[in-house]
Every structure is written in C-alpha cells, then in structure tokens.
Simulated assay, not measured.
Amino acid sequence: MSEFESYGVTAGIWSGRLLADNAPARIRLFHLAAPVAEAQVLSDGPGAWKVEVAIPPHCLSDGMQSLILMSDDGQDEALSPSARHLATLTLVAGAPLDTDLRAEIDLIRAELDLLKREFRRYAAART
C-alpha cells in the first residue's frame, strides 16, 4: 500500500510525501514516456518518505506538459513489472493551445453525457 501526497513545485523541485511500509528502491520522473530524472527519497517518520525530484529544464515548454512519478524495484533503464504510478503533474506554460483545452472539455462533456444516459437507463430499469 502506498499513497503519494504532492506538495507542488517550488523552484523547479516537485516534492511530496509517500506513505508506504518500505521505501521504494527507485522513484523516477517520466516525460513523454522517457525517464528524465531520479527522485531523492528520505525518511519522514515511520511509514513515511519525503520525495523530491528536480524537473529538468528541457521538460518545460509552451503548452501543457505531463510529468509522471513512478516507483519500481528495477535497476536497469526499463520499468520493472512491479512499477507503480505514484502521481501525475500537469504543467501549463506560455500560451496553452486553445484547441487542446477545447478538445479536453469536449471529451469531458461526452463522458458526462454517457454517464448520465447510463444512469438514467439503470434507474428506469429498477422501477
């Protein structure tokens, strides 16, 4: 069992607190499906670990960028089968593309319409 609480980004360092029985062997930051940095993990009390990772400057550019924090027990470049997703950080810099935001809103609306339709169908079947 593990749970990551993000403290946000300060001076280019993403920090947070990981609640887990044991410290993970490795926590890495991924951008565009490639590892870009390795996090520093320090004890923060029983069952808690302070996690800090520097966001590389090449990951910052105009638009939306998604950074993913993953833990695993592997030693090589590839993620091990036991890899776990801890958190996702979305950064918006410069002028975000209006079409990207509109597409996301349209997708959310479509999903909400689907949920409403299925809920109404379910409710009608129960009466």
Score class of each variant (00 low, 15 high):
103 A>H: 12
107 L>F: 13
33 A>I: 00
38 E>R: 11
65 Q>A: 12
67 L>N: 02
47 G>A: 08
65 Q>P: 02
31 H>N: 06
115 L>Q: 13
101 L>G: 10
93 A>Q: 14
15 S>I: 00
58 H>W: 01
109 R>P: 09
70 M>R: 13
99 T>Y: 13
73 D>K: 03
34 A>S: 13
99 T>L: 14
65 Q>W: 02
75 Q>H: 11
29 L>I: 01
20 A>N: 07
100 D>S: 10
48 A>P: 02
39 A>S: 03
89 L>Y: 07
21 D>R: 15
57 P>H: 03
112 L>E: 07
109 R>V: 11
24 P>W: 08
100 D>L: 14
18 L>V: 00
86 L>C: 04
102 R>F: 09
68 I>H: 11
38 E>N: 04
20 A>V: 02
31 H>V: 00
42 L>V: 05
87 A>C: 06
45 G>A: 11
73 D>S: 15
50 K>D: 12
28 R>T: 03
30 F>M: 12
47 G>F: 07
69 L>W: 06
105 I>E: 14
58 H>M: 07
72 D>I: 01
23 A>Y: 10
56 P>N: 01
33 A>E: 14
56 P>A: 01
88 T>G: 05
74 G>T: 01
92 V>I: 07
29 L>C: 03
41 V>W: 13
29 L>M: 07
71 S>N: 02
59 C>R: 09
22 N>A: 14
44 D>M: 08
81 P>V: 06
101 L>I: 07
111 E>C: 08
96 P>A: 14
81 P>K: 12
104 E>G: 15
98 D>C: 05
46 P>C: 09
28 R>A: 14
23 A>K: 15
99 T>I: 13
114 L>F: 05
17 R>W: 04
59 C>D: 01
80 S>P: 00
97 L>R: 15
40 Q>I: 07
19 L>K: 10
47 G>T: 03
86 L>D: 05
51 V>A: 01
49 W>N: 05
90 T>Y: 09
96 P>H: 14
28 R>Y: 02
105 I>M: 12
92 V>E: 12
93 A>P: 03
23 A>L: 09
78 A>C: 04
110 A>N: 07
71 S>P: 08
33 A>H: 12
82 S>C: 03
41 V>R: 10
30 F>G: 00
41 V>T: 04
31 H>P: 01
85 H>T: 00
60 L>Q: 11
106 D>M: 09
103 A>I: 01
65 Q>N: 13
16 G>R: 09
61 S>P: 00
21 D>V: 03
101 L>Q: 10
94 G>S: 08
112 L>K: 10
49 W>S: 05
58 H>N: 11
